Structures are given as C-alpha cells and as structure tokens.
Simulated scan of single mutants.
Amino acid sequence: MRRSHRCVVALCLLAALAGCGAVLDGRATPEPVELGNASVPAGITADDVDASTLAANHDAVLGSTSYTVLVREVVTSNGTVRRNATRVRRVAPGGDRYLFRRVQRTNGFPTSSLAPVLTYWYDGTAVTQRIGTGATARIDRFPTEPPGPLRDPTSHWGVARVLGAFELRPNRTLGDGPVRLTGVRFSDPESAPSPSFVGPPRNASLTAVVDGRGFVRSYRFAYDADASGVSGTVRVVRRVRFVAVGATTVEPPAWADDAR
C-alpha cells in the first residue's frame, strides 16, 4: 500500500469539504417553547432564533442514531454551470463508522483539479480512501484516531455557523408541523461557511426547516461570490438534507478490503 503525500493532502481537503468542528459534550434536548399554535424547540421564538441552541438540538437528535446527509452544491457564472457537486454521507449511530462519496463535474472552475469521484470509508480505526472508479481507481488506507477525518459527524457545527450568520425569522406553523426559518440579511457574515475556492459570500439568503424535535431537517444557502480564474460573479447554491434518520444502514464497501 502506498501512502503518498498527495493522498494525505487529498484526505485533508476532503475533511475540510465535509465540514469540521468541535463536538458538543451534552446531548440533552432543551424543552420546547410555544410559537402560535405549534410546539417548537427551544431556541426559536416569534421574533428571534438562537443558532447555538438549535445546533445543540440538532446534535442531540442525531448523536445516537444513524442517518444520511445529502448535499448538492451548484456554482454558476453568466448562466453556465461551473461546478455541480453532490456529497452523500451515511453515518452509523455515534459516528463511529461512516461512508462518504463525493462526485463533481466542473467547467473551467478552480476545483477542476480535484478527482471527479472520491469515496472514503471510516471503520473506527482507519480511513480507506478510493480515488476514481473501476479498475483504475487508487485505494489507500490511513490509520487515524476517532472520530476520523470527519470532526463534526452530525454537522451541528456547520448548522450553527450557517444559521448564526443570519438574522432569522420563523414562519408560523400549524399543529405540530415543522418551523420554516428565513434569513435574508447577514448578522455575522464572517460566520457563513464558504469553500476556500470562492471569496466571501454576499447577497446571501437562507431557508431552513426545523422539526419539533429540534433538528434541522434541511436548509438552502445561496450567495454570490468571486472565484479565482472565473470572470465575473459566481452564484453558489448549496442544499443540505438529513434523511433516513434511524433507518440508514452503514456497511463497508467491497473495495475497502483491497487496501488491507
């Protein structure tokens, strides 16, 4: 097995793309409050949203169960799609195992040098990384300490950052339905997560859906930015969904044995 410097760099970059952050120690969900006719989680009032409290709720729900994270990010410039990337992450209860796959298509964009398909499997003690597909794929295995390269398995830190970047207002709900949060004005632009290949976000908007248990089921984050090597402004639209909560199966891929 070859452990090249290039593979280490690729793994670090992948970890950055997947999202990093500190893990909350406690996972006790705060008591809900009332909003109109609905019971909603702590951190939401009729006039305000506390991003850190919602992030704690989110972590409390997902921290001890399995789930799948679906991310799609599309970057356009002058009506042309410059980057179309999808990420799927399947996480076992407690985040002690996970399978990650990123697929991207680019058109004259800074990330064109990244592998179109990259997958990794974390088994609790090591990461097995696969670059490419089929017989020509390169596979390497790297021992690592828990929780592996993904420092924020529940994405609660990413949730705190994106929600904390905006002045958010909840939409009134009926019954026990979810609460929809809308943000059209930055309150802390520097908190907004953005990839290293684009400049600071501007003209941003955010919509998020939070259920009665307090975890963020989905959000859409859109903004304008400058990108190196791309003429004019680019538009970035990122959609994130947390699905199959408690119903996700996390098994090692067949190719993981090839690196042993």
Rank of each mutant, 00 (worst) to 15 (best):
R82Q: 05
R89M: 15
R82I: 04
G79S: 04
V81W: 08
D59Y: 12
D50F: 09
V69T: 13
V81P: 02
D59S: 07
R83H: 05
S66W: 08
A56K: 14
N78T: 11
A85C: 08
T76M: 06
R90Q: 12
V61A: 12
A85V: 11
R89F: 10
R89P: 02
R90H: 14
G63P: 00
T76E: 13
A55M: 09
T53N: 09
N84C: 05
V75L: 10
T68C: 12
V61I: 10
V88C: 06
R87G: 13
T65V: 15
A85S: 12
V91H: 04
G79P: 01
T76P: 03
S66H: 04
E73Y: 00
A51C: 07
N84E: 12
T68W: 11
R87I: 13
V88R: 13
T53L: 10
V74P: 01
S64G: 08
D48V: 06
V74L: 01
S64F: 12
V91K: 00
V74N: 00
L54S: 05
L62D: 04
A85L: 07
V61C: 10
V75W: 07
D59L: 07
N84V: 05
D50H: 12
H58G: 05
V71E: 07
S64D: 15
S66V: 03
D59Q: 12
E73M: 03
N84M: 07
L54M: 06
R87L: 10
V49D: 11
L54V: 09
S77M: 06
V49M: 08
G79Y: 02
N78H: 13
R72A: 00
Y67L: 01
T53H: 14
N78I: 06
R82V: 01
T80G: 03
V88L: 12
V81M: 09
L54K: 10
A51N: 03
D48C: 05
N57A: 04
V61R: 09
V49W: 14
L62E: 05
S52I: 14
R83P: 01
D47P: 03
E73Q: 06
N57S: 12
V75R: 09
V61N: 09
L70R: 11
S64Y: 13
E73T: 10
G63T: 02
V69R: 13
T65A: 09
R87S: 14
R90T: 14
T76V: 11
A60Y: 14
H58S: 09
T65W: 14
S52K: 11
N57G: 04
V88Y: 06
N57K: 03
Y67V: 01
A85N: 05
Y67A: 01
S77Y: 04
A51Q: 04
D48K: 15
V88E: 15
T65N: 08
R89N: 06
G63N: 00
V81G: 06
Y67G: 00
A60K: 00
R89Q: 14
N78S: 14
L70G: 04
E73L: 02
D59R: 07
A56Q: 15
R87V: 14
R90N: 11
S66Y: 06
G79E: 02
N78W: 13
T86W: 08
D50R: 12
